[in-house]
Design a protein around this nucleic acid. Structure first.
Lengths: 249, 249
DNA sequence: TCAACAGTGACGATGCGTCAAAGTCG
DNA sequence: GCGACTTTGACGCATCGTCACTGTTG
């Protein structure tokens, strides 16, 4: 008796699906049992089970129920074509997710591994990341990425050092400013030289990157200051020192 | 006037979102405008806009609306922890999709690039793939994968040849069977030798793989026969020839 | 008063999970 | 008639898109 046709529960148990799923496939016309008992209980024949196997196969390959139905109901669809399309879609998704992963890791890399990170700092960092992505061209960002990858741990360490040096430098600016040192004064111009050295290290001498960086600082310097805790007034002073340097050149 | 607060349409245009989206964020309490006109039109203040920026940032990082709200509304959540969790999830997804991609490509690779593939052949191939995955251990499958990757185009070409040789061999079995040749006859045993050579080439002499292969053929040989168009009776004859070989050894 | 906007409400899609009330099988 | 099973029906999930109809703004 049991070799003839299966009831939903039976079929569900054998396939590992749920009864609800089979009901659903019936509802949407993907797999309608060929038979019913007098009391309207579903009876799945061997043919139905075979079709279900196909459904499961295609589902495993990541097709939507709609696509599965299209494949099964349109005789003479092109399997290879379908697969190629599907692979292409998958590749795109994977690429997007990979990029997302990279961004997230870059974000995480901005903080000390074990440090407590405030929501404040977190969001500011995100903002800065967005800014960076807005000010540099895709090619320049690509170049940065490559440099990071090739530089390895040593470059990462140096990046931390540079960040510290920047903080020191900004503090030095602040001190001179408080002392009332004239922007054209050699003591201030000494700071300008240190600044240019750091900038050069970052840009690698590439004038386009320097351009982008400059524009970003000019337009968004305050945000950086906020992000890293620099004194905005020191930032202003730094700009004046830079002006003075250009004026004397 | 326009610097004070924005109406939905304005905000939508500036952020690139749709009005519906902003409505939705309002509905679920993710971003409720602080103000309303007398006529109940939404008015978004600078504070609201700032919050929206955060929402967008987190969304770009792939968080769900629910997660975004959790981040924004729970002061003192751990950003690093959240990111790490998120990256882990992403990695898993990527890995799954990568595997899926590989399976799809393997499937596509079973057919001639420009050939018309019937739905029939397509589904049979899927079935065979499933069978293969069932009969070999994950380690063995891993080994096959490596071999394929390292073998390159030459090995792929050889695989095609082997497939043709198999077809010839099965045809030869069929011919002997029709002639009524005794399975123990040297002419039949000659075929057995050819068969063993092909099997050996495939297993690479690995006895475990040979075991798996044997079991698969014993239990599912008919499906292979169907898949490749072999005569089931020739298959049966082949088994007898094999028996005879074992008997005489 | 009129065009351009805004409001609310509802259904749709995806792939079922989950619960309820009522009917069937053996 | 009883317990195990099944049926249909419905809401829910996430994230809005897309009407439709009505009200507000300037």
């Amino acid at each position: 008796m049991h070799g003839e046709a299966l009831k939903v529960g039976e079929l569900a148990r054998r396939t590992g699906l749920t009864v609800r799923t089979l009901h659903h496939y019936d509802e949407i016309g993907l797999l309608k049992p060929s038979l019913h008992t007098e009391g309207a209980h579903r009876l799945y024949t061997a043919t139905d089970v075979a079709r279900l196997q196909l459904v499961l196969s295609l589902r495993q390959l990541g097709f939507s129920l709609e696509e599965v139905r299209a494949c099964l109901d349109r005789p003479g669809f092109s399997p290879l074509e379908v697969i190629r399309l599907h692979v292409a879609r998958l590749r795109e998704q994977i690429e997007l997710q990979r990029e997302l992963c990279e961004r997230l890791e870059a974000l995480a890399g901005c903080f000390h591994p074990a440090a407590e990170v405030s929501a404040e700092a977190f969001f500011q960092t995100i903002e800065v990341m967005h800014m960076i992505e807005n000010y540099y061209t895709p090619e320049q960002l690509e170049y940065f990425k490559k440099r990071r990858e090739e530089g390895g741990a040593a470059l990462e360490e140096r990046a931390r050092q540079v960040q510290a040096l920047w903080a020191e430098l900004m503090e030095a600016y602040r001190v001179e400013m408080e002392k009332g040192t004239d922007p054209a004064d050699p003591r201030a111009q000494e700071l300008e030289k240190r600044r240019q050295a750091l900038v050069n290290e970052f840009t690698g001498g590439n004038p386009e990157i320097e351009q982008s960086l400059k524009r970003m600082w000019e337009e968004q310097g305050e945000k950086f200051a906020a992000q890293f805790g620099y004194d905005p007034k020191a930032l202003e002073y730094m700009r004046k020192v830079n002006e003075a340097a250009k004026g004397s050149a």
